[in-house]
Design a protein around this nucleic acid. Sequence first.
DNA 1: GCCGTTGTAAGGGTATTCCCTTATTATATT
DNA 2: AATATAATAAGGGAATACCCTTACAACGGC
Lengths: 207, 207
Amino acid sequence: MRAEDQTEVVYVVDDDPSARESLCWLLGTEGIASQAFASAQAFLDYWSSDCSGCIMVDIRMPGKTGLQLQNELNARHNLMPVIVLTGHADVPVAIRAMKQGAYDFLEKPYADEELLSCVKTALELGREISDAESEKTRVASALENLTEREREVMCLVVEGNTNKVVAAQLGISEKTVEIHRSRVMEKTAARSLSELVRICLILKDKI
Amino acid sequence: MRAEDQTEVVYVVDDDPSARESLCWLLGTEGIASQAFASAQAFLDYWSSDCSGCIMVDIRMPGKTGLQLQNELNARHNLMPVIVLTGHADVPVAIRAMKQGAYDFLEKPYADEELLSCVKTALELGREISDAESEKTRVASALENLTEREREVMCLVVEGNTNKVVAAQLGISEKTVEIHRSRVMEKTAARSLSELVRICLILKDKI
DNA sequence: GCCGTTGTAAGGGTATTCCCTTATTATATT
DNA sequence: AATATAATAAGGGAATACCCTTACAACGGC
């Protein structure tokens, strides 16, 4: 299932049932779908990389804390923005949450409009990140079908070398380079050299 | 003067003279150059885009506060990491500082080792940002020397179109496209199409 | 042993790019 | 009025890329 097929959901993680309910109700008034979890572990069990939307998590919870949940999500390369909520905040915790990549940090009690606007921008950001990521995995899977030699040729070609130079560097014939090169274009579905360069640059930080 | 020629300095902005002195002394023990300012305005008057290093700013100051200074620096497209220091922090201020792009947020009194390691990583990050930025301005100035027509041709070529297609799209002859194209390569100092594509991608977020 | 994949190489043809020169027109600058 | 710059166009030739086919050797799986 691709990210685009997934419905956008706000995942609410809070041990306090009334806090969960009021938050989900508030989101519902704006037509935003939500799903509540009573503990960090419950959400981690549910979480998959296909989830799409954003996450709202309370700091103080029995079992795993909100910060630990955030850490675990980072380790799993979660892409959804995380909004941290808390009733008893101190500065070091807030800073740590932000440095761990929290999208925002809200103190309870929150102003409804503030929270909603925060959620909406978080969902917007989540969409952008998800789109960029699905693009990355698409081209990454294309590159995985390349043989070693094809990859070597591709890198040298993308660096701006002509077939002749590539052939000399790899100690093979220009004709062979031609063949590898055409296979690279075929497998990556790139219709021009510039497209191939863009594909490689997208994955530069991923490879 | 280019950024590379500039010495790396930690700019300390704090209204408390003893705080400035102790901080600068601490930095000096590690061989880190520093420069102290008694107010946000004093630093803003000194600031230029050529400055290189990082900035340490106290929140509570008469006149402009640390957050206002941060805002002003953002408006001026400051590239140096900003470390916010404060003795009396509350969560909203800390969050605001982080959301405004602060590199870190430390509470006084600070642990010397913590502060030093923070400064060192900030300086490291500053170098990387500065390097990337000087690369951007270098290629940006190259693109400014292009005529409108040359820019049009460049964009279409970088998108992967052949001279023939570009000529059809612009309603001009293939030969003319050839000339514009060669001028683009000459002015941008790109030695291959792939290099030109990379140049355009570097500036995609800047143009 | 047979088959699919991979890497290698060649022949032949077409399309494209790259580089040289020359030339006209319009616009802006001096 | 003279000059410079930008945009246009053409001819010609060398280098390169692109696309087709055929071919062979090595290697692993069935």
